[in-house]
Design a protein around this nucleic acid. Structure first.
Length: 936
DNA sequence: CTAGAGCGCTCG
DNA sequence: GTACGAGCGCTCTAGC
């Protein structure tokens, strides 16, 4: 083809490559290459789009010049102007990352120019080329739907949305922005952009911005004459935020003078080399496209062994995986063998790791050994802390039968591998192993966690322990630990297990972990949970590990004194109860309490539990307490018993001898909804509702010179409900900062807000919570202690007043029935296997399905806040210690309290963006104090 | 003697 | 038969 000079009559097509594949990745079904599971959905979408253009563009309107433009790197000249530019941007999904070089390769295979420039966005290159083409008298079509490019439209420049197959001209831009292209930047400067983190003028959206620009003619005119604006808020924001608005304009204004090292003439359309193109398409295993391309060029279709298959989340396990064989596992007792393994790991780029220790408490556990696996079926165990069973002496390298390398030697060799950025460490519940290694000065990264992959894939279906996963997904029953350790008093710790047995057990764990990873990893994309796994599960591992290792200081003396006081009171109550009953009995036994109440005293209203004994829960005893002292005293006793046994006594046993602090453990995959669960001890249920219970929080203290700072989301679940079910009245109330329960009461009972009584508000509050739980007449009646018919009346009125709630509930259940799962706003899936059951099960399943998206979205929000928190408070003398579902607790040096609160609050309130745009504000309240009671 | 179910209570 | 989601201490019993 003869080289021509770009000029009049020429038509330039500019394809926004980065934006296209990002959109294609999310919009198209997830496709993986059959032969190796490589995700290629976005590449396929891209190739189809390019091919379609090649086919369509043989007419008179065909481009004479064409280029695909990509972003290069994330740092651009805009970050020099404003360091927060695109700071909200999500990390690229891992399944998309490998597709980017493939898309460049595809562009080259089609023999289309592929351009990018460090320090500039694709948009700037597109702007520059557009300007040059216009200056030369040619026409331009920008293949993109990015609104940031709309400022270029007009006068011979058009846009084309390839996904929607829609042209965008001057009028199209006007539709979107309310102004013509030459004023688009002015509108964008005012409206800002949450996704790119362009600040704009707070409170002004696109519509208002367009109104103002149309009235004043330009942004500069508007800012100069802002004083003339009637609305005080607008006037104020335009005056006070002038600098911010001007900066925003610079950020959205595209650069038409990007220093390019090529000219328009270099972009002239070239015929693809058919063989190169066919080879590429065949390599991608695009069967249909390969055939169509072959037809177009009149070539034979090359044989492609496998069809690309859309994975639905049920991709088969590797069919040719070797069986499990203990005999193949090796025990590593010398450095040469260890170095061979390390070389193998480096060559492979990933390794499954498991640690064996002397305790389930990571803060006390000593390392007994480490197992590794890089190929299914072949694993090793490196003993480092095994001891003689009788004497307890550590085996050395010269113990012939039981020799082992020293811990120091092994960790020195493994540390560079475990910390190597280019080697993926795979574990089952990696938080445990990461904490063990962290205590030895090793920061394990990067990681994958098979437990968390399973949680993202199968949440709600089953638990995610290794034994169950192995049986379910590998069809293999792992070696049980019981026979090795024994149980009860005679149980031994893993360091006393003989090394041969330990090798068989431990190496298998690494083997299983690797195989689970091989099964789960390619399924994430098909099940559309890659982003959930990568942004809500995996990044929490190091964050929680650090929180757990920090622990919280608990004052033993305070607890001890309270325990003594409780014991005294309980002793008094005990004798009083014996007196009232006329005999001694075990107050801790509900069965015996029931006997005395209902058999001996013949009080009315008793019900039996399913095991046939009298039921004596607190609400029943509360009713009986009006008739008799005995049930009243039992209630008093039970409260003290609970506080003493679970809190003031048990917590003391959890104070770590070395740190003097209590270190809880968070289960990331514990709760079905996405919530964390706290165990050993549970620090998410420390009393707060009663005065006496709340005093236990006085024992949770800050170090001298520091304070505890608590930040909690206000009404987060109701806010999410208002957004999700799209209830205008509730959204408005949250926007206006109105008391939501009072508002509900006012709407339901026709009582003006000014005349609200606590009792009416209390009822509305119970209904609001009931809605979140999948309300029933029975449940509300029991909660409010009113007749069931009356409760049902309330519910009916509520649905009448807020019909959107009913719509949401019905739609959620219908979704669950159709898909077998519900999901949160962030895409977390919660499976609902019982949703089609009948009988009482059906009710449970329906209520759980209604609740899960709300509770789960709230859980996702705080997870995101936690993941972002560490960098947000970096440099401040502040440590995040605890999470209690909607609360984060920090320990902060006194002088940094205000800064910490400001930064943490900002992270928490903005945690939904940019992945989710909530139509209600998130509000966070803060408190501080010397102890948790004061801070909360 | 040990493990596990059942009950009841704590939290969001 | 019923509010959603969790964990833990105590009693009691089945089974070694």
């Amino acid at each position: 083809m003869a080289t021509t000079t770009f000029g009049k009559g020429c038509h330039l097509h500019l394809i926004d490559g980065s934006a296209f594949i990002f959109r294609a990745f999310h919009a198209l079904p997830p496709l993986t290459r059959k032969s190796d599971g490589l995700p290629i959905g976005a590449v396929a979408g891209f190739c189809n789009m390019i091919f379609k253009m090649v086919e369509d563009n043989s007419g008179p309107d065909a481009p004479t010049h064409v280029a695909v433009i990509f972003d290069k790197g994330s740092h651009t000249f805009r970050n020099e102007m404003y360091d927060l530019y695109k700071a909200n941007r999500e990390e690229m999904p891992e399944d998309l990352r490998p597709q980017i070089p493939l898309t460049r390769a595809a562009t080259e295979a089609f023999n289309i120019a592929c351009k990018e420039l460090a320090g500039y966005e694709a948009d700037d290159i597109i702007a520059t080329l557009s300007c040059q083409a216009r200056a030369a008298g040619g026409r331009v079509t920008i293949i993109s739907s990015d609104k940031d490019l709309m400022q270029l439209v007009g006068d011979g420049v058009e846009m084309f949305d390839a996904m929607k197959n829609k042209r965008i001209d001057r009028d199209g831009v006007f539709e979107k922005f309310g102004v013509y292209p030459d004023r688009v930047v002015d509108v964008q400067a005012l409206a800002g952009d949450a996704v790119d983190n362009v600040p704009g003028a707070p409170g002004i959206g696109i519509k208002t911005a367009a109104l103002l620009i149309n009235e004043f003619g330009s942004l500069e005119e508007l800012l100069d004459r802002a004083g003339e604006i009637k609305q005080p808020k607008r006037r104020e924001v335009l005056t006070e935020k002038r600098q911010q608005i001007e900066l925003s304009k610079k950020l959205v204004q595209l650069d038409c003078e990007t220093p390019l090292d090529f000219t328009l003439d270099d972009l002239e359309v070239r015929e693809p080399d058919a063989e190169v193109l066919m080879a590429f398409l065949a390599e991608m295993e695009f069967r249909t496209l390969t055939r169509r391309v072959a037809e177009k060029f009149g070539l034979d279709t090359p044989a492609i062994s496998e069809n690309p298959v859309e994975t639905t989340g049920d991709a088969p396990a590797a069919p040719d995986a070797p069986g499990f064989d203990k005999a193949v596992y090796t025990c590593i007792r010398d450095t040469a063998a260890l170095e061979t393994w390390i070389a193998r790991i480096r060559e492979r780029g990933y390794v499954a790791v498991d640690t064996e220790t002397t305790s389930l408490d990571e803060m006390k556990a000593e390392l007994a050994g480490i197992s590794l696996c890089v190929d299914a079926g072949e694993a090793c165990y490196i003993p480092v802390g095994h001891r003689d069973g009788a004497k307890g002496d550590l085996f050395g390298s010269d113990d012939l039968a039981e020799g082992q390398l020293s811990l120091d030697v092994v960790l020195t060799l493994l540390k560079p591998v475990l910390e190597d950025d280019s080697i993926l460490k795979i574990g089952q519940n990696m938080k445990y192993d990461a904490k063990i290694f962290a205590r030895h000065g090793i920061a394990v990264a990067p990681i994958d966690d098979t437990m968390l992959m399973s949680y993202a894939l199968h949440g709600g279906l089953h638990n995610h322990g290794m034994d169950l996963l192995s049986e379910t997904y590998l069809n293999h029953v792992p070696i049980p630990i019981k026979p090795l350790l024994g149980s009860g008093k005679s149980a031994i710790t893993f360091d006393r297990v003989n090394i041969d047995d330990a090798t068989g057990y431990a190496a298998e764990d690494a083997d299983i972990t690797l195989r689970l990873w091989q099964v789960f990893k390619p399924r994430l994309h098909g099940a559309r949970v890659t982003t959930v796994y990568e942004t809500l599960e995996r990044p929490l591992v190091p964050v929680l590990a650090r929180m757990e290792m920090s622990g919280i200081k608990v004052d033993r003396d305070t607890l001890s004194r309270m325990s003594n006081a409780f014991a005294q009171k309980m002793a008094g109550l005990e004798s009083e109860l014996y007196e009232l009953a006329g005999r001694s009995f075990n107050v801790n036994s509900p069965a015996q309490v029931g006997e005395i109440l209902f058999d001996q005293m013949s009080l009315e209203g008793g019900k039996k539990t399913k095991t046939g004994q009298w039921s004596t829960p607190a609400d029943v005893l509360e009713d009986l307490a009006t008739l008799h002292d005995f049930p009243a005293r039992v209630l008093d006793y039970r409260q003290l018993q609970k506080l003493k046994s679970t809190y003031t006594d048990a917590l003391q046993d959890h104070i770590n001898a070395e740190t003097g602090r209590v270190h809880t453990s968070y289960a990331i995959a514990g709760a079905n909804t996405g919530r964390l669960a706290s165990t050993d001890p549970n620090l998410q249920n420390i009393p707060v509702r009663t005065e006496e219970g709340r005093r236990i929080r006085e024992a949770f203290v800050a170090e001298p010179g520091k304070v505890l700072v608590s930040l909690d989301y206000s009404q987060i679940e109701l806010r999410i409900l208002a957004h999700t079910a799209d209830i205008p009245e509730l959204k408005q109330a949250f926007a206006d900062g109105i008391d939501i329960h009072a508002l509900t009461a006012s709407e339901m009972f026709n009582v003006p807000l000014a005349e609200m009584t606590p009792e009416i508000r209390r009822r509305a509050k119970a209904i609001n919570f009931g809605v979140i739980y999948g309300i029933s007449g029975f449940g509300l009646a029991r909660n409010l202690r009113i007749p069931r018919a009356e409760a049902q009346g309330f519910i009916d009125r509520y649905f009448e007043r807020f019909p959107g709630i009913r719509t949401y509930m019905d739609a959620t259940i219908a979704f669950a029935k159709e898909h077998g799962h519900v999901q949160t706003l962030f895409g977390r899936r919660i499976h609902t296997p019982e949703i089609n059951a009948s009988g009482p099960q059906a009710g449970f399943a329906r209520r759980a399905a209604i609740n899960a998206p709300i509770q789960g979205t709230a859980a996702d929000v705080i997870r995101r806040a936690m993941v972002r928190m560490e960098s947000a408070i970096e440099g401040l003398p502040a440590t995040m210690l605890l999470q209690v579902h909607d609360e984060l607790l920090f320990e902060v040096s006194e002088e940094a309290v205000d800064d910490t609160i400001a930064r943490a609050k900002s992270v928490m309130e903005g945690a939904a963006a940019p992945a989710v745009h909530l139509a209600v504000p998130l509000v966070v309240d803060a408190g501080k104090g010397a102890n948790w009671a004061e801070a909360h």
